Amino acid sequence: MPIDAAKALAAEPRSGEITWDRKDVQLYHLGVGAGANPDKPHPATDADELRYTLESALHVLPSFATVAGAGSPGVISGLSMPGVDVDLARVLHGGQRVTVHRPIPAEGRATATGRIAAVYDKGKAAILVMRTEVADAEGPLWTNDAQIFVRGEGGWGGDRGPSARLDAPDGPPDRTVERPVREDQALLYRLSGDWNPLHADPEFAKLAGFDRPILHGLCTYGVTLKAVVDTLLGGDVSRVRSYTTRFAGVVFPGETLRVRMWRGPVRDGAIRVSVTAADRDDAPVLADTVVEHA
């Protein structure tokens, strides 16, 4: 079996220094649609959008944590951990959770420590949970949990793990917005450090079973969080405490995302979110998605 669960879980964590600056933050924000908000008549110069793109007004979307320091150690790093030997063409990003311990600074230097936190046997596939904890001189900054879905690597009789499925939200959404995905969105987003050829190389995409390159799941993840912050959190990124999703389907560059949002009870401080591909009869894209907030 290419995945040795016991060996992967017992492996020593990998630590390394990561750095980022304002240019990295701005590039990431552009990669998830900043400056192109269709709800604004002139988004490139709108004051709300400039908070994502102008260095003098910059604040940091918490999903930037998935790419800060080029996301290392991250999903691809997790595939080279001891006990893990898999074909990249069989790998999909199954889910993601970011927990923010305090607002992310626009410039920083920190230590990122990554390890395989769990290995689950789903029968026809395996799921690796790659946990990355990041701290700077002032203490913890954020924790990333990436679920790595590896097709064809399950069936050894291991723990199936918890279910990520949530009950459907009650009633119609409080808000629905649409976010178009540019034809070159994946090419722009990958400059933040996710070089998986699945998102750029047509031949590699065919090997993975797709007609053409697909958008990074984490790009959709960022687009969605920005929509939630802008729509229901008053544009205040510091209100986000955690953000969890399950990647339920693919997005092709050029499509339009439909983002539905339900406010939770005030005491819960949570927003439920569903994302679908508007161009494909609302095919599921992100499911079981929750933004916890102050």
Rank of each mutant, 00 (worst) to 15 (best):
125 A>G: 08
122 K>Y: 07
141 L>H: 03
134 V>E: 00
156 W>N: 12
158 G>Q: 09
143 T>M: 03
123 G>T: 11
134 V>L: 06
157 G>A: 12
140 P>Y: 09
129 V>H: 00
151 R>Y: 04
141 L>Y: 04
117 A>P: 01
137 A>I: 03
152 G>K: 05
157 G>I: 12
159 D>W: 12
159 D>P: 09
148 I>R: 00
116 I>Y: 01
129 V>W: 00
119 V>R: 02
148 I>L: 03
148 I>N: 01
154 G>F: 10
150 V>R: 01
150 V>A: 04
147 Q>G: 09
134 V>F: 02
133 E>L: 04
122 K>H: 11
120 Y>S: 06
157 G>H: 14
154 G>P: 08
139 G>K: 08
121 D>F: 09
130 M>E: 04
142 W>Q: 00
126 A>W: 03
145 D>R: 08
125 A>T: 01
150 V>W: 03
135 A>Y: 08
117 A>K: 11
158 G>L: 11
153 E>Q: 14
143 T>V: 15
149 F>M: 13
125 A>W: 08
145 D>T: 05
118 A>W: 05
136 D>K: 07
129 V>F: 02
131 R>V: 10
154 G>N: 10
130 M>G: 00
147 Q>P: 00
124 K>R: 15
130 M>K: 07
126 A>V: 11
142 W>I: 03
152 G>Y: 06
125 A>N: 05
132 T>C: 05
124 K>E: 13
135 A>E: 14
138 E>M: 06
123 G>K: 13
142 W>Y: 15
159 D>G: 07
141 L>E: 03
122 K>E: 10
147 Q>K: 11
141 L>R: 02
143 T>D: 04
153 E>C: 07
122 K>M: 12
117 A>W: 00
129 V>Y: 00
144 N>I: 11
118 A>P: 01
129 V>K: 00
145 D>L: 12
158 G>V: 12
148 I>T: 01
121 D>R: 11
157 G>W: 12
159 D>M: 11
158 G>C: 12
144 N>E: 13
156 W>V: 13
146 A>D: 11
128 L>C: 06
127 I>L: 15
124 K>C: 06
149 F>I: 09
120 Y>F: 15
156 W>Y: 15
149 F>T: 04
143 T>N: 05
142 W>S: 02
136 D>I: 05
140 P>G: 04
131 R>Y: 05
118 A>I: 08
137 A>F: 02
152 G>H: 10
152 G>D: 07
135 A>I: 09
153 E>V: 06
149 F>G: 04
148 I>H: 00
153 E>A: 15
159 D>T: 10
155 G>Q: 08
133 E>D: 14
155 G>P: 03
155 G>N: 09
158 G>Y: 12
127 I>W: 12
132 T>A: 05
121 D>Y: 11
133 E>N: 03
145 D>I: 03
122 K>P: 03
142 W>F: 15
151 R>I: 07
119 V>M: 10
141 L>M: 14
140 P>C: 09
147 Q>L: 14
124 K>D: 15
126 A>T: 15
157 G>T: 14
149 F>L: 15
133 E>Q: 14
140 P>N: 04
131 R>Q: 15
116 I>L: 04
155 G>F: 08
161 G>N: 05
135 A>L: 10
124 K>A: 15
137 A>D: 13
130 M>T: 01
129 V>I: 15
126 A>E: 02
146 A>T: 09
153 E>Y: 14
136 D>R: 06
143 T>I: 11
157 G>P: 11
